[in-house]
Design a protein around this nucleic acid. Sequence first.
DNA 1: GAGGCAATTTAGGTCTGCCTAATTACTTAG
DNA 2: CTAAGTAATTAGGCAGACCTAAATTGCCTC
Lengths: 228, 228
Amino acid sequence: MTTRRVNLNTESVDNYLKAIFALGGPGEERVSSTALADRLGVSPASITNMLQKLAASPVPLVEYESRRGVRLSPAGKRRALEILRHHRLLETFLYEVLGYPIEEVHDDAERLEHFISERFEERIDAKLGRPKFDPHGHCIPALNGRMSKQTSRPLSEIEEDGEFLVDSVSDGDSVLLKRLNAHGIAPGVRLRVLRSSQGEFVLRASRRSKPLQLPLSEVSAVRIRSIG
Amino acid sequence: MTTRRVNLNTESVDNYLKAIFALGGPGEERVSSTALADRLGVSPASITNMLQKLAASPVPLVEYESRRGVRLSPAGKRRALEILRHHRLLETFLYEVLGYPIEEVHDDAERLEHFISERFEERIDAKLGRPKFDPHGHCIPALNGRMSKQTSRPLSEIEEDGEFLVDSVSDGDSVLLKRLNAHGIAPGVRLRVLRSSQGEFVLRASRRSKPLQLPLSEVSAVRIRSIG
DNA sequence: GAGGCAATTTAGGTCTGCCTAATTACTTAG
DNA sequence: CTAAGTAATTAGGCAGACCTAAATTGCCTC
């Protein structure tokens, strides 16, 4: 019986690796099947199936022990970072060069990230002047996969009200993103937290703009640093 | 029994439609299965299979009678032209904005043409100033699918030697394209045919450049118009 | 008008990525 | 320490897009 080699360069595999990378967090913790199933919108059975394939490949893309969750192998992490790089370069490109509205950038980048060539990647990187951050304030991994670690924390986790620097804004929810943008809340901006009680925050980006009230769930989309 | 509806918005379908469009020529003649199989690098059986599906869809993309070849339906033609538009806009974009070498433009455009959004299409079109021709000299179909018809003829079909205007150059063979380019043979250029005998042509684009000798098979990649 | 041949279609598989249902392994509460 | 309850895995299927091999069919020639 020949060991049949499978093709692991598919969009689907890309998405699994991205999801594991994202859910693993900075500590690269093991990720559970359900968490993945949930994130990818796929049944748990499909997850198990794919993970077994990814782990069994000649150069395994994940480390996987049955019922104990997965984490990326070095090769898998490399791939995940490459795609993340594509994604963020594309977002920057769509925003800067093609003049997309900020909240429209994510979806197109998500689709194209799987299909651009190395040449395309290199050309837009050059055109943009080798940017380090995308328009949401997220760090763009270098070609070699290096990426500086996050020094920010979610706005939802502050101890007390006051003034902060917006570090980045999550790009997943375009409606929220548009709203934040309309209120001047964008990376690099000074943000005043006027009031944060249980589930509600009231924010203002500058004297100009109107205050914005947000529930805790949405506030966590904004990451901040202390000023200074 | 429910009529199961199939998904016809796939890359594969795109490629069938493109192939039928290209092989049908300006007269939109019926195209044979073998010609398609050949062009798409797929077995004749697969062609039959796909054509049946395309013809049976609720809005048929092709007109197909068993053993008589296919042609595009109006809907199919619309789709084919849309993709051709994507392709040529992308080529122009990669060339003009991203500075690709001319011979590298085709492959990336071919991959991306299936995945760009309407917004992307509109943005690059705007950025390029609504171009009418791609860098190979091919006409870019308008948004509504309108496209002026070709007034040129293949260089391989000239009656006698002399001077011509290069109309366009085929983008399929990147090696040839690079060679033509290196000899200054590009759309809009005056081209002198120094000698054309049986299977061989000798061409020169300007007093400057060295003459280029090409076999008939490659010469047909160049389309020309009379000078006037 | 029958044979022969090439083109085409039908039949029956494969592989990928997904799904549902059924089963098994943990974990934890009593 | 057992009974739930939950998480994960196995088993068995399906659709899409391909393939090979085995009919067919259309047509051309003798």
